[in-house]
Design a protein around this nucleic acid. Structure first.
Lengths: 234, 234
DNA sequence: CATCAAACTTGACGCCGTCAAGATAACGCA
DNA sequence: TGCGTTATCTTGACGGCGTCAAGTTTGATG
């Protein structure tokens, strides 16, 4: 994780871009998104405050890189979870929802940067690609759970192309539950509930258990409803 | 909304506390939580940067006051929505969920301050009371939808006291859907979907329509499940 | 009217992000 | 090999930020 400074002989760093990203992740992990500072990251990378400008443009550029990393990590963890569920006979949709929460809990600072919209370069190509892929996985698994066909380009299709999709409600429903629970947990909304015996683990168990049951039941019910009366949608 | 400066004769302001809150709300509305600054608020209130310290302690104190206002507003809007639903025969639970979203959309900056945990005085008595009341309404309506009894002190009970509650899963489920959709919308996660014809209104309609149907169905299903096999919970 | 506490200002401190100008090092090409 | 070009990094400065200590003004209280 550290990149260890390949060869920091003198004036030139070697790989400042990666060093800054590593430093940023460390700062986010230690102080959270509140105590995040460009100068602090530069300090940790052993470089002057103005150095990162050439690599990231400005603070927003660095945050955008972090967010991209966050989306890619999310995609990877969800895919891994899907594979594991497939092998063990578990539910794929529940697996990605649990992976989503796990990613948020593992790196809440990065998660907030990715989803908090502190101000990111929204036209950044890498960020867009990473976000689309993560969204695509969600779409794919939801449609799969509904027993519907999925296009071969799910992981690259623009989210806007789902505006009129028949399954949009289910997709948003699944995403809302997952994202809502994740953000409430890392933002401390559920802190009072975590103080009780069992703490956070108890809440996570509830999420992976009853909440997932409810979620899957809702999606399945919606699927049969769709079959019974497809006209009531849109 | 303006408080109009009661009598700003000279050195003393008159009601700086309220003036600061008004200014803060205005700044949040104009520039969002990103461009929010204590100095800017003080400037608008026509006062030196150090003046607010005596009323709020520091920036966190001001944000805490804003958050308290946000929670109180949320409670009020939810109660109003409940009353309206009761009168019109609509669903009460769906009503508070829609009110929740409406509040977030009406004042996204304030909503983010209340729920974003930028750093609030979590031990503040007023904040705690306001948050507990809002949570209590959610608990009450969820239990009502489940057909369960509600205690007379729902609006003042500590959230931690629900840690072992049989309905906690349903409560968290409802809250997760609502909070998740609301935050995703105001944080721009659904921006690509808003660009299509119909825009944001179409998404909101979907939320009030199909998503609420799914939510209510999930809660009702969970209720009958509870009756059929109460031992499978906890 | 004298006193005193609360409310507000002033000035300063260290931090922040960013920019312009200069120093340095790596790289391509003769 | 040597030289120029270009990317990289430093330095120094700017304005803005939150906050603190010290001083000033005001309204209230006796």
């Amino acid at each position: 994780m550290d990149t260890k400074v390949s060869k920091r002989g003198g004036y030139h760093h070697g790989d400042l871009r990666q060093a800054m990203i590593d430093a940023a992740e460390a700062v986010l992990a230690e102080k959270g998104v509140g105590g995040f500072t460009l100068r602090e990251c530069a300090r940790r990378a052993g470089v002057s405050p103005a150095a990162p400008a050439h690599h990231f443009g400005n603070l927003v550029g660095l945050l955008t890189a972090i967010a991209t990393l966050g989306f890619d990590d999310l995609s990877q963890e969800m895919e891994t979870a899907v594979a594991k569920a497939q092998a063990s006979g578990g539910d794929r949709l529940a697996a990605i929802c649990e992976a989503y929460l796990a990613v948020a809990l593992a790196r809440p600072g990065r998660f907030r940067v990715a989803f908090g919209r502190l101000g990111l370069k929204n036209n950044d190509e890498e960020l867009r690609r990473a976000a689309i892929r993560a969204f695509g996985i969600l779409v794919r698994e939801t449609k799969l759970a509904l027993g519907h066909e999925i296009d071969s380009d799910v992981l690259t299709r623009l989210p806007s192309s789902y505006a009129g999709d028949l399954d949009l409600a289910e997709i948003l429903f699944v995403w809302s539950v997952t994202h809502g629970f994740s953000t409430m947990l890392i933002d401390g909304q559920l802190a009072p509930l975590e103080m009780q015996p069992g703490g956070r683990g108890r809440l996570i168990a509830l999420y992976s258990g009853r909440l997932m049951e409810m979620l899957l039941a809702a999606v399945r019910a919606s699927a049969s409803l769709t079959l019974a009366n497809p006209a009531s949608h849109g």
